[in-house]
């Protein structure tokens, strides 16, 4: 019955670890015993996320030499074209700042949040083959995606800020600490939203198209290109249900010293929505985690 080879292992503890029960983390731990030195769950998760981040970045940058450059140039062009185009059309300042600055400040984080949510939605399908390695869990792939997306976005933003400042715009941030906190809150919101969408589309894959289409008008109803005050006032109570509108307005208010967000914008609303979404995301992830790694579904 007993294989004589592993007398050193604590038989009592190792006896009958159910692989598909909540003791999974321990199963992973003892799994590592034979290979190298044992690692704690946290260490395993850290090294998995590190490996995934490198892999994800490699996949994004592609194999070609200019891959990394293109990954950065594409959003830079997007932001530049929109901000300069609208500056030419409207040709004036908003809240005492140049129009390109105004657009950049709101649009860069908005694009990050939108991309984060949409990329998390596709994460499961694109990383399916990795779940054969038992240490890798869907949550790790989500976290790695957000990290890579944020790094790319931050680099793009930094390049544009330097370029604008060099051109002569005033790029200073009025309340840097609150700005960073609001950005982080927005990212957490996007992460929770992306996770909920990923879980929904795992159960109902056909919804992906609908969700993608729903993200398109968000551009306009979130006040990315114009101050939210320019949006139709009659619609305001409905528009204010959209957390992206709150986040974009709040971020602008932290950066631009004389910008007043539209009435009804509140941090509290975003925090509440984020907490509720995060709770739903984590809860349903917990309930569905075993199905998520299962092949051929979704």
């Amino acid at each position: 019955m007993e294989d004589s080879r592993i007398p050193a292992l604590p038989r009592g503890i190792l006896h009958f670890l159910k692989m598909n029960s909540p003791v999974h983390s321990f199963a992973r731990l003892c799994f590592a015993v034979n290979i190298l030195k044992p690692r704690s769950s946290l260490q395993i998760q850290k090294s998995v996320i590190f490996a995934l981040v490198l892999r994800e970045a490699r996949a994004r940058f592609g194999v070609r030499r200019m891959g990394a450059v293109w990954t950065l140039v594409e959003p830079i062009c997007h932001l530049l074209i929109f901000s300069i185009l609208f500056a030419i059309i409207r040709g004036r300042t908003v809240a005492d700042v140049e129009y390109p600055v105004f657009v950049l400040v709101g649009m860069a984080p908005f694009l990050l949040y939108r991309n984060t949510a949409l990329r998390l939605m596709d994460s499961l399908r694109e990383n399916r083959s990795l779940f054969g390695y038992k240490q890798i869990k869907p949550l790790d792939t989500y976290v790695a995606r957000v990290l890579v997306e944020t790094c790319i976005s931050a680099t793009v933003y930094a390049i544009l800020v330097f370029a604008f400042a060099w051109y002569g715009f005033d790029m200073s941030v009025a309340n840097p600490l609150m700005w960073v906190a609001t950005l982080a809150l927005g990212l957490l919101f996007a992460f929770s939203l992306g996770m909920v969408l990923a879980l929904i589309t795992h159960a109902l894959p056909s919804l992906k198209v609908v969700i993608r289409m729903a993200f398109f008008p968000l551009y306009f109803i979130s006040g990315v290109l114009v101050p939210a005050a320019y949006l139709p006032q009659a619609m305001m109570p409905v528009l204010l249900l959209n957390p992206f509108l709150h986040i974009v307005e709040l971020i602008r208010a932290e950066v631009l010293p004389h910008y007043t967000p539209v009435d009804g914008v509140s941090e509290g609303y975003v925090i509440c929505i984020t907490i509720v979404l995060l709770f739903i995301a984590m809860g349903s992830y917990r309930a569905r985690r075993l199905h998520l790694v299962s092949t051929k579904n979704g």
Binding site: L36, K37, R39, S47, V48, L54, R55
Partner: peptide, 11 residues
Amino acid sequence: ENIKFVCRVYG
């Protein structure tokens, strides 16, 4: 890179 990836995952 693929080999390194698996090495990292397995510590």
